[in-house]
Nucleic acid binder design. Structure first.
Lengths: 136, 136
DNA sequence: CTAGAACCTCACATCCATGTCAGAGGCAAC
DNA sequence: GTTGCCTCTGACATGGATGTGAGGTTCTAG
């Protein structure tokens, strides 16, 4: 009577997760292959995801964008979702390490942006001087 | 009497430039192939670089690190070194565009760093609570 | 002159997240 | 049933900066 068929909390399929997160189906399967993302399988083998996986995918994307490799992300994620002594131990260190690397990278990018700004200022100056010379 | 042989300003060879900039010889040749770097050739075909090229290589590296492609860098560099009306015209726009992209990327990275910080805080909290429970 | 280091070109290899395609099966609607 | 869309696995392709090696020339030190 009310449509979609699965009324219980058995989660969404991969296409749905893809469109919700903006990540391609291909990439979601890849994440699973790399151990970044878990899925429960239906009897016929189709992947099902819970609402929590949406946030997880978002986090994965952010970490990718920050330059972490899938291997590194795989090291950090378990620490995120089940903070026990075991994984915390080494993962915390890597986490701090990646944080520092990221921080350094940000500083570097800011310096590069400043350089670009300077170049643009210089160029504008040249431009104006040319225009002046033109309309002497 | 004073060593190196070439007393005039005929510049350094590629190995020297590589060690001065920390960029591999392979990459320097690649930069030239992409039109990012100029070199004068000796009679026998060996590349010679002037002191200015050192800075240029450094800038190229910075732009690469900022996520620009060699094609984009190639568009910007002429504008940097010879700011005439022609190249300024389109290149300035691209420059502003890349600057904005970079700015957005920086903001994104900062948010990701904050996320990492939060995760570390949470983890530390879990850790301490575990330790407390352990030494009840 | 000669040995070794540096250089040349050309070309193929690597990494890694994604894209893309093929062939097969699952699921809902008509 | 059949049509159409979604999903599955597996495999090959892509792009871009860089590594690496072969085969040959050039430079420099002894």
């Amino acid at each position: 009577m009310c449509g979609t068929g699965h009324s219980r909390e058995d989660g969404v399929r991969i296409g749905e997760l893809a469109s919700r997160t903006g990540v391609s189906v291909r990439s979601l399967r890849y994440y699973e292959e790399q151990g970044l993302l878990a899925s429960t399988r239906s009897a016929s083998g189709q992947r099902h995801y819970t609402a929590g996986e949406i946030d997880r995918v978002a986090l994965i994307q952010r970490l990718y964008a920050a330059g972490l490799s899938s291997r590194t992300i795989a090291e950090l994620l378990p620490c995120v979702h089940s903070p026990s002594e075991e994984n915390s131990d080494a993962a915390m260190e890597r986490m701090a390490q990646e944080r520092d690397r990221l921080s350094a990278h940000i500083a570097d990018l800011i310096r590069t942006r400043d350089t670009l700004d300077e170049l643009m200022v210089i160029n504008r100056a040249h431009r104006e001087s040319l225009q002046m010379a033109h309309s002497h």
